[in-house]
């Protein structure tokens, strides 16, 4: 071996820091504690197929499922909730997003207040909104559509205002330098560059809303979930399974269309 290559001693293996150990230990203990608290039970996995309850899921009563009043009317109501709340939420989000972007809103107070409200709205899970509105304005699709509108608004504002933030500021500058007022300057300078993203986000929110509107009925906010909730109380899991197969078939098709539209836009 050539001695010129032996320039240095072998280093000592560095010991992991005590803090990392401590963090790992705390996480481990927390995980165990949490597992006990949720009554973690692996035997569910191997006992799952021998559970007699599965026989309640089978056979699926297709002649009950394929009826207008049991499946298709509630399903259409679900779609209507999703469409209406997407349209309302996204339309209102358009001006709000521009008001919330630091690029287009020089006013710090407006910016701060709207951002805080939107963060608070998003901190409440969507079905909590639904339950609140059901209590406030009565059971049915009306409450469901309102709650999803609020939620769409919050999510859309979050996504879109960040896109506006990142938009190229130069066209806006050009429009301002030609003496345009604030609103027309934003309309001609920023709007065209961010509009495709706006449409794409709207479609994405539509997909979210479709999924959410399926389960709204579980808390009384209309749509196909109402049927699931009723059948659940009668322990008719065979009917529920049939319904779910139909629902997710249709949801899947709609999503595929929406996804392919989105891809074409971008």
């Amino acid at each position: 071996m050539n001695d010129s290559t032996k320039t240095s001693e072998r280093p000592v293996k560095p010991k992991p820091r005590a803090r990392s150990f401590l963090i790992a230990l705390v996480l481990l203990v927390l995980t165990f504690w949490a597992a006990v608290k949720v009554s973690f039970d692996l035997s569910t996995f191997w006992e799952v197929w021998s559970n007699p309850i599965w026989s309640k899921f089978w056979p699926i009563p297709w002649d009950w499922v394929f009826t207008k009043e049991n499946t298709f009317d509630p399903l259409i109501e679900t779609l209507q909730i999703a469409v209406a709340s997407t349209l309302l939420g996204c339309l209102v989000a358009l001006p709000v997003s521009f008001a919330m972007s630091s690029l287009t809103t020089p006013n710090k107070v407006v910016y701060f207040i709207s951002k805080t409200i939107m963060n608070l709205v998003r901190a409440v899970p969507d079905l909590f909104w639904a339950k609140l509105l059901v209590t406030a304005i009565g059971i049915g699709a009306f409450a469901g559509a309102w709650s999803l509108s609020i939620f769409s608004l919050a999510v859309m504002v979050k996504l879109f205002s960040e896109t506006v933030d990142a938009a190229d500021p130069r066209p806006l500058e050009a429009a301002r330098s030609s003496g345009a007022r604030h609103l027309p300057a934003v309309k001609t300078g920023v709007f065209p560059t961010v509009f495709p993203s706006y449409v794409a986000y709207s479609l994405y929110i539509f997909e979210l809303n479709i999924r959410a509107s399926v389960v709204l009925g579980l808390v009384g906010a209309g749509g196909v979930g109402r049927v699931i909730e009723t059948q659940r109380q009668f322990f008719r899991f065979d009917r529920i399974l049939g319904l779910l197969i139909i629902i997710f078939g249709i949801v899947w098709v709609i999503e595929q269309i929406s996804v392919s539209l989105r891809k074409r836009l971008v």
């Binding site: 109501e77 209507q80 909730i81 469409v83």
Partner: peptide
Amino acid sequence: AIIWSVAGLD
């Protein structure tokens, strides 16, 4: 779409 969806929400 607007008319159809709003009509369904009684």
